[in-house]
Nucleic acid binder design. Structure first.
Lengths: 222, 222
DNA sequence: GTGACGGTTTTGTTGAACAATCGGGAATGA
DNA sequence: TCATTCCCGATTGTTCAACAAAACCGTCAC
């Protein structure tokens, strides 16, 4: 499972930094000094700047001219936007899916993986598996542009999850939902699967938004 | 109308190179030597590499490890994918639009602009106005992510148009269609507007694909 | 004709350097 | 005490020069 691609140092570093950001190791809003971070990551400043360009374009970092880059701060508006994108892409993808598509197998794998992770108490693993499940839904379309765009949006969403108290537990209530959606799909009832997914997204959005609102009230008390 | 933002040299250079690529001044598949292009654009090699990262992520350039970057070569599969994305985004955007949205004004402006350009025989202007019209449709959603993603896809599509003989004339037959869609929207009949747009996209896709197929047959004779 | 080989070119990466800009604190004045 | 101005240090934006590594290309032996 190790990446067989001996990617360039820049991309490799981008992957490392991306992981740090998503894992919450770097707090949103935190400014990233070029010289210091370059030293930490053991790359040159020029290479790090290329990495910054990549991650900025992905939406994980923000870049203010002459003021450097900082970790993007998720906003409620942003989360709302991402859920709209999810609805727009995921629901039609499932509705017009071919039940025996290769991506359906990946969906099944992710469901199993999520259950195993929950048994082990590995909430982070649950979150990853859930993300993979929805990425597989989009992969049903065989559209490289949609899958890339969706992956980017999900990375941003994950950044927002990092702000919440017990982020991965947000996924837990929806675990069985994934299994039900998958069953409807393999049974060929794509319409029902899509409807159930739409409902899933509505409820998930509501949970996340309320947690987010609670957080903002607590963090900015006036 | 000049850009009030004194953007960084990298972004400014990116805009210039992007314009060159879209204008067809650089042919698809052509390799871009870092040293030579850096000299041509009067920027350093490092800055040019940052520009490459940007445009590669936009889909206008492709990057092969240790083999440099080259102008992306549009494929029929790519065009097909882009039209699928267009249908998925544009039609719902129009269907659930608020007829008095600010973007509707921009749509009207683009229609007028396109007509004026056609009168003047400025086919490139017609193409730009048409692109603006559809960008405005997506702007109806108020979703920054969708608009950014859509703009990127349209830039790729424009790159494909650059391959065709009289690219901008492909837009001409659809000029009145834009006006009709706009009228339906301002009249509040968003459902009819969306239906008409869907039909527009189907026909436009067919025209472009056939022109593209003709081209590929002629270019690769064996 | 095919395959190995070596030189040339290009990319990937680093380090140092400098101008431009930003942020903060000191000095000044009311 | 408070506000304004000015200056200095730190950081970013950009360039240049250098070198290792990889790919390209022509040559040569077989």
């Amino acid at each position: 499972m190790t990446d067989p691609n001996p990617a360039s140092l820049a991309e490799e570093t981008a992957a490392r930094l991306r992981a740090q950001v998503i894992a919450g190791h770097l707090r949103p809003g935190q400014r990233l000094s070029e010289t210091r971070l370059a030293a930490d990551l053991s790359v040159s400043r020029n290479t790090l700047r290329e990495v910054f360009r990549l991650l900025t374009r992905e939406g994980l970092l923000t870049h203010a001219p002459n003021r450097g880059v900082s970790v993007a701060v998720p906003s409620m508006a942003g989360v709302l936007d991402i859920y709209r994108v999810r609805r727009l892409i995921e629901v039609p993808a499932l509705a017009q899916a071919w039940p025996r598509h290769a991506a359906a197998l990946r969906m099944a794998e992710c469901v199993a993986q999520a259950r195993a992770a929950r048994e082990a108490g590995d909430w982070r693993g649950v979150g990853s598996a859930n993300m993979g499940f929805h990425a597989a839904i989009v992969a049903l379309t065989d559209s490289p542009r949609l899958t890339a765009f969706f992956a980017q949006a999900m990375a941003e969403l994950r950044l927002a999850f990092g702000l919440l108290d017990s982020p991965e537990q947000l996924h837990a209530p929806f675990l069985q939902e994934n299994g039900a959606i998958l069953e409807l799909l393999v049974a060929g009832d794509t319409a029902a699967a899509a409807a159930r997914l739409a409902d899933y997204l509505d409820r998930s959005e509501r949970v996340v938004m309320s947690a987010f609102a609670r957080l903002e009230n607590g963090v900015t008390p006036g």
